[in-house]
Design a protein around this nucleic acid. Structure first.
Ligand SMILES: [Zn+2]
Ligand SMILES: [Zn+2]
Ligand SMILES: [Zn+2]
Ligand SMILES: [Zn+2]
Lengths: 133, 133
DNA sequence: TAACACTATGTAATAATATAACATTTAAAA
DNA sequence: TTTTAAATGTTATATTATTACATAGTGTTA
């Protein structure tokens, strides 16, 4: 059972926008879209994003500086994330694969270190783009 | 046998700086450090960085917006990269592990897709920082 | 209730990261 | 040589993110 986080006003506005979106959203595009709701400054957006990332409701796609809602209700820890990114249409999907996450959380490096946190981004062509080639 | 890339003047200056460094370097820190060599503008740095990433001489640490020299002579393709990042001292090491890369390059997602390119960043505490806890 | 700690908000200014546009030069290939 | 591609130089600007400071709400506890 995960801890219940009651989102604040700004957090809820911004989460709802990201959650409704079918593509990753960038901070300033979010800002533009929530100005009618009274959020006027970048910092208001970044603060909400930081919190939402921290509690695992959204993830940052590092290679794109963009944010998507978590698709995996069990990953609200937000510490072991994997995504597939289409290099043609920029479609991003979260990968929820138990075997993969187990493998990576058990991975031991040369120095014998294990890591409880990782971010993995796969790149390629999505099905749709592949068929168009 | 990899293709030999003869670096241009700016590329060589910037690669040498990154290669000598014991930590990832950020673009504007690079700019500052090469101004005495006649490189004056951000774009000159970014162009060299883009090329060096493309040919696999350096990698970008996406979560840090910083660049390190490739430690793995066989990965000049620059398409399958893994790093460990210390969240305390920010030390970054490239992970060269055949089993890991084989596992990830063979990974098949729910839709049956395989990916020939990925970037993986592990986070934790390095040995030194762990012992200080 | 009052005092306190903690979280969130509002606002302005600015820092840090990255690209667009255009002119010129150099190097490699045909 | 002619042509093509790659690299450079320069200015301006776009995009992403944080610092600093003031204020307001929320929950806890004395
Ligand atoms: Zn998730
Ligand atoms: Zn696609
Ligand atoms: Zn490498
Ligand atoms: Zn460390």
């Amino acid at each position: 059972m995960e801890k219940q986080h009651n989102l604040s006003k700004n957090q809820k506005i911004i989460f709802d926008l990201i959650d409704k979106s079918h593509e990753p959203l960038k901070a300033y595009s979010i800002l533009f879209n929530v100005q009618k709701k009274g959020i006027n400054a970048p910092l208001q957006v970044y603060r909400a994003l930081d919190k939402l990332v921290e509690i695992g409701k959204i993830h940052k796609i590092e290679s794109r500086n963009a944010f998507i809602a978590c698709q995996n209700s069990s990953c609200q820890i937000s510490k072991a994330t994997a995504f597939s990114i289409c290099e043609s249409c920029e479609k991003v999907s979260e990968i929820s694969n138990t075997k993969l996450s187990k493998y990576l959380l058990n991975f031991t490096d040369e120095a014998g270190m294990k890591y409880s946190k990782y971010n993995l981004e796969f790149f390629g062509l999505c099905k749709k783009c592949k068929s168009k080639e």
